Amino acid sequence: MTGNIILPSRLMGRRLISTTALRNTPVKLAYTTYDQETSQDKSAKPPVVVMHGLFGSRNNWNSLSKALNQQTSRRIIAIDARNHGESPHTSEMTYQDMAWDIQHLLEKLNIKETILMGHSMGGAAVMLTALTYPYLVDKLVVVDMSPVKTSPSLQEMSVIMAAMSSIDFKGLQSLSQARQHTDKFLSTTIHSPTLRQFLITNVMEDPPGNFRWRVNLPVLVENFSTHIAQFPTIVPRLGGKTFTKPTLFIAGGKSDYIKREDHPGIKKLFPNAEFVYIEDAAHWLHAEKPAEFLKISSDFINS
């Protein structure tokens, strides 16, 4: 079973490097659709739209998207957030922009209602989408992200970004050499091999013989402390909006992104929220414990 890449326009095959051309407008998100196991009445079931976290891409969710498609018999649409993966680069990187991008994609695909799933940064984006456009969302799955507090661990990303920004790709001869060079450089700052391997998937060759970050690193750095790491500050400006439909928060037992003391505050925004912890997992729980994550998320989607 394989996913089919469906591009909504001819622009989807191009890299847009300018950070100003798309200012103040939704971007046309790159996405992959998985529908090999979908039943004949697929139009009757809202599809599941999945957004990755910071520095991720839809490719990180390839195996899980296939499995979710099989377990739920629903179309799964994995998307690249703006400034990530194969989606366009733009100077704007707020959660309002990301929610607008999702709404725009659903409109273009003529999807009237969907189940939204997002991890970390993607979790914040889908929460804001549900709060802003509740009529578009049937259910919501938030993976290790809280709307009421910012994890202290998230602030460590500033150090990681500084290290990534310091890497010089000049003189390197191949993509494998560029990634080895990046891994060695980052090892002095990032001690986790798993995290380093996750980050270096963003090293790409474009054009041939030239290496760069696939993500729009300068814009992510510029917007990190003021926007990306500040999702809870948006909530007071929403005018008391709530999302009352079924919502599932899946958290890592070893993560500090969602604490049990956060539950009352979260339920003020998402009164129909449930919480499930995968005790032996940290922030990237869907990658650390994919079988457990798949069962929890598919059971909720199928309920």
Rank of each mutant, 00 (worst) to 15 (best):
F275Q: 10
Q103W: 02
A251R: 15
P26L: 08
E86W: 01
D80N: 10
W61L: 13
T247M: 01
N272L: 09
L128I: 04
Q70I: 01
A178R: 09
I102Y: 08
V50G: 06
A287M: 11
V141Q: 03
R179Q: 15
T94H: 05
T201S: 09
L106I: 03
S65P: 09
H286I: 08
G240A: 07
G13S: 11
T72A: 08
I79E: 04
H263R: 13
L29P: 08
R58G: 11
S63M: 11
L172V: 12
L186S: 04
A67D: 15
A178V: 11
T188D: 11
T188Y: 04
I160S: 02
D262G: 04
F198G: 11
V276H: 14
Y277K: 09
F231L: 02
M121N: 06
Y31I: 05
N302S: 14
I17R: 11
F231V: 03
L7N: 10
D206S: 14
V50R: 07
P152I: 07
N62P: 00
L186A: 01
P264E: 05
Y95P: 03
Y34F: 15
Q36I: 00
S153N: 12
F300P: 12
R15E: 08
N223V: 03
S158N: 08
D183L: 07
L29A: 10
S165D: 15
